[in-house]
Design a protein around this nucleic acid. Structure first.
Lengths: 340, 340
DNA sequence: GCGCTATTTGCAAACGTTTGCAAAATTCCT
DNA sequence: AGGAATTTTGCAAACGTTTGCAAATAGCGC
């Protein structure tokens, strides 16, 4: 084994290595950076010495000098239910794909969860830290205006969320309104005649899903009501239970804002002896893994999370290059299983 | 609004701010760092100027000078099924808690997924990058030896995983062997007489779970077999299906390495008309959210993920302070629901 | 061997912050 | 008021890289 502990400790800086190789630090830097202006033999010598001593250039110093860090910030603004979202399997899946994409492009990922209520300055602080070359915001939460403000003066930012006409920040996301339409259409096609939307209509994405469903309902003359529900699993169960007993018999088609909510809803419906889809039809949103494991498996509106992550990263890269990119709206897809 | 765009752009460095305040950069630095050696009035002036111009000190420069970054690396080594783990809801939940804990302690989190097979140097590279003050490794995968090697020369590292007698790296994790025992005992108490372990026994955690179950089975004279299964959901389903038809009638108690596998198994069992728990008993591991949503809800062995995250962070902090901390083994807890 | 150009190298100044040390200003005591 | 003790400041040298510029070396045709 060539890199024993002694060797590993001894040569920490590019200058150490330069001394060993009998050249100047500048040359070592150039050699390691793979620049063309260094003699093939010198380069080889330097590279082998570097390997031998397990040397790696200090990224902080490099970052400082070059004014770029090779790190992309990923920030998750948490809404009112503070602890909610990170356990949400949707966000997590997106994060996983983002990590993959960024790694593939040679970037590191710095993750931050923030509570905008406690820290109005969350976005500027992150951007201004000098630690990141660009930022991906996962979810607009209730921070639309703040994000718009920042977008005016800071190019390398891309946001996962909902697109609204004329907004100034670059966003990637599913066409939630269309998704809502698909869901409502399916419920009605499956025979539902009185609809309900289960979820929190505060966040823009959810509001758009509801709006899409309402469009369809109104067009077809079907009533639809909102059943406001928090997303944190502990609160949600109780709220859903209450909703279900309240609407008893007045609703035969439920559109849940999320598969997670749909799954909980399924459990509560079963507990009250309501049969899905015979008594009540149910449609979810996201097509998370859980959707195919419920009983019955969920009919849901699929978001292509992998494509979303790819889009976020590609757009961000172009913005890092100076482009003013447009937003990217992805098409949702209805996946019919057995709950509606 | 005090920080308009002009202001935001103009004062980027501590020197700019010093000029504005009519003091030297050193004083500004001290004021912003909250040191006691600066006059109350000067400090106030500097702070208000900083606020007004939205100034934030550059973390790279600060990190370079102080030789610490305020960033903790979190690295997830991926095993053979490359894409597997990040979507695994267990890892994700742990990551969420880690993010919270680290934030609370004032650290940022840098996330890296690595494929050790492609990059033997994954751990040294991360540590040597100079970007992180310490590292948390999530899962030993098949990299036990590599981690041991590094542990000898690098203090601020804590690993999530399995504890084995006499190992040299500091680990936090559940007592998997005990967990396996609990699972097997429950299966047998529920009436099972021929057991099977469903999962991959390659990773140490899973091997220990299997070993624990085998201990019990052998002691009680009950046969137990291993049903090797990959963890990636796509492959797992098919493999489980195959296992189930292969063992038809020869097994009446299944211990799944993970709730995720257990849930898939439940689906496959149902598809083959086997009733849980009447025909086959089933016990999972982790107590993920999904465990309470399956039909029937899963009996499982609970890992306290939040406590694990807390432990990882606390131990790491002590190591950053120079302590040689011991490992932390958490007790698993049997959660009895309806699948066994 | 001599000019000439083309490659390689070294030098030194950045990048923006922190901090030991010494100088200056202030306070306190008699 | 005078000096000592104390608080507050400024100076300048780091931290480890990168890079423009100029110097040195090598290559080449004659």
């Amino acid at each position: 084994m060539s890199e024993d502990k002694a060797a590993r400790g001894s040569v920490r800086t590019i200058t150490d290595l330069a001394r060993l190789a009998g050249v100047s630090p500048g040359t070592v830097s150039r050699a390691l950076a793979g620049k063309s202006l260094v003699n093939a033999k010198t380069r080889e010598k330097i590279e082998s010495l570097a390997r031998e001593h397990g040397f790696r250039p200090n990224q902080m110093a490099s970052g400082l000098r070059r004014q770029k860090t090779g790190v992309i910030g990923v920030v998750i603004p948490l809404g009112h239910d503070t602890r909610q979202q990170i356990s949400d399997s949707f966000f997590m899946t997106l994060l996983g794909h983002l990590a993959d994409e960024l790694t593939r492009e040679g970037y590191d990922l710095m993750l931050r969860r923030v509570v905008p209520e406690d820290d109005a300055d969350w976005l500027d602080r992150f951007i201004g830290s000098g630690m990141i070359d660009g930022v991906i915001v996962i979810g607009q939460s209730d921070q639309f205006e703040r994000i718009e403000d920042v977008a005016d003066g800071y190019l390398p930012m891309v946001v996962w969320g909902n697109h609204t006409q004329g907004q100034r920040h670059c966003v990637v996301g599913t066409d939630n309104r269309l998704g809502g339409k698909l869901a409502a259409e399916r419920l009605i096609a499956a025979g539902a005649t009185r609809l309900a939307f289960l979820g929190d209509t505060g966040p823009m994405e959810f509001a758009a899903r509801f709006a899409g469903a309402r469009d369809v309902a109104e067009r077809l003359g079907v009533p639809i009501m909102a059943l406001p529900t928090h997303l944190s699993p502990d609160r949600a169960s109780a709220e859903i239970a209450r909703h279900i007993s309240a609407i008893d018999g007045q609703v035969d088609g439920i559109f849940a804002a999320t598969d997670t909510l749909a799954a909980l809803c399924l459990t509560e419906l079963r507990a009250r002896g309501l049969v899905v889809p015979d008594g009540v039809k149910l449609v979810g949103f996201d097509d998370l893994p859980i959707a195919r494991q419920t009983v019955p498996p969920l009919t849901t509106v699929r978001q292509d999370i992998a494509a979303g992550a790819r889009g976020l990263v590609q757009l961000l890269l172009r913005r890092l290059g100076g482009d003013e990119t447009e937003s990217l709206v992805l098409p949702p897809q209805l996946v019919i299983r057995h709950s509606a």
